[in-house]
Amino acid sequence: MGTWQLVRAGFRQQSQYRLAMVAGLATNCVFGFIRASVLLAALDASTGAFAGYTRESLAAYVWISQALLGAVLLMVPTTAVGERIKTGDIAVDFLRPVSLLAGHLWMALGRGLFTLLPRGVPAVVVGTLTVGWFLPGGVAPYLLGAVSVVLAVAGSYLGAHCVALAGFWLVETRGLNALYGIVATFLAGLFVPVDLFPGWLRGLAALTPFPTFLQYPVDVLSGRVVGLDAWSHLATQAGWLLGMLLLAQLLATLGRRHLEVQGG
């Protein structure tokens, strides 16, 4: 089965639950309103530089990150792989002609990209209607931004995938999953942009792949980071992606050796 068919299958799977999409969009918007209120009030109350953010760039940050939320897997990093490891169905996946990783990654990419249409685009529209126009001019931010978003969707899936693979050893990954979800969300810059963190915390975030899941694509897509800096963002994202790909492969190989499935 071709890669393209897997992506399309993920795309179509996600398109079936229309009401859930509408509801997801509604919650994205409500969260966007709350976050925009809090951050804009903080900007008004701030006497410092506020990391160079203006009302426009802060609004762009809030609404573009809300738009990406459904596509990027952060807050609730549940994956089908985790469930299949727990039930033992994973043994069947190992026998398929498609590698475990490729099968799930391409589907996840399809699902994520579909989610951008009904949840991402309207969230940006709602944002521009309520706080004014914040999208960048020119073509470059959109082209580079598209690449950055694809890297972020794939990268965030791989992160969750690796957590799920820990299930080969832990069996119950619920605790780890919840912890990953909250730490990743925080360090990705969902609630407060990473650039507003105090220095040591920003340093800590830079040691993880999480900012490349959200802060980076938002920076590139909103035109806050342009030119050579934008390319460097993309390179960092690609680097983490590659690292996580290798980790996922390694975990799958080791896990397969460790796996014991009972029954006949």
Partner: peptide, 21 residues
């Protein structure tokens, strides 16, 4: 830890401002 991280989110905002709302 989830609770602590949520508290940290609030604290990070206050690392930029003294009074909010």
């Amino acid at each position: 830890l989830v609770g602590v991280v949520e508290l940290a989110e609030t604290w990070v905002v206050f690392s930029q401002v003294d009074v909010l709302g």
